[in-house]
Amino acid sequence: MTLPSQNVIAEPQQLVKMTYREGMRQAIREAMLRDERCFLMGADVGRYGGCFAVSKGLFDEFGPEKIRDMPLSESAIAGIGIGASMNGMRPIVEIMTVNFSLLALDQILNTAGTLLHMSGGLFNVPVVIRMATGSGRQLGAQHAHSLEGWYAHIPGIKVLAPGTVEDMRGMLWPALEDPDPVLIFEQQVMYNMTEMVSATPVPVDIDHAKVRRPGKDVTLITYGSCLPKSMTAAETLAQEEIDTEVIDLRTLRPLDNDTIFASVAKTHRVLIVEEGWRSGSLAAEISARIMENLFYELDRPVDRLCASEVPMPYSKHMEEAAVPQPETIAAAVRKLVL
């Protein structure tokens, strides 16, 4: 799976082929070398090499103090990371997957999300919490959900969702520099995805969405694993003379209204694609914002393509049927331009 990325730098930079997994590994490594307050903490990040092999090799390079293996105690993993961040450290907290992060939800919402406000601005929580999300590997109903939209509901935290190798590589550093809690959602189905990226890291703008493919007929808003699928769909549609503009949200909270609105004002037709469940989804929020702000710009009602409202099934054909696919995305776009 390769994704043509526009923001591969113009400078005479050397380009290297890199996986999504390697992008985060290098980002962690660079952060550790750059800032001695950084350390990685989580279950199996050290001796095992990370449950998705993201931190493989780092234990040998940095040792057990900096690459800290932790027990299966998700609430404590998040809570201790929050505490350390409040007292001068810059922990990178790894929770294996979003499914298990629900055991840490209390700390993320009730502590990380509230402290700055509750303390009247006294206490910052500059923690970064990373976790894998998404379906596509037949892992069933307790290992394959996409719950980042829920996290995007919480004021006080920032939510990032890298959909390219370059973003995976470049989002960690600005996240660590952010004075507030940042969650990074990594697509488990994309860890092996490769892309050409510059040999030296490029900082990523985590405050703005990015137009991945300019187009004039339809605006397709998406992020994460639905980005490559949407790009594929857009290529198919281009052959049918349907020119799709693909917007990669990148940051799910706060949402970048400006980029979205500018595109909608141009195309007047919108499809929002995500792997979260439809009811109360991030897509619902975006749709509402467009309706509230650009009602008279719309030629058609905003459309959404989300996951079926079922726990994720194990068998392949059912799992595929449960989430957006390039074919279903293209079909939804066609309906908008008919």
Binding site: L103, Q138, G140, Q142, P313, Y314, M318
Partner: peptide, 22 residues
Amino acid sequence: GRGGSMHLFDKEHRFFGGNAIV
């Protein structure tokens, strides 16, 4: 086929899963 290896269930044998959140 909805559960897979990690989520075996059988009512007759009072086998309550196959639970994969540790």
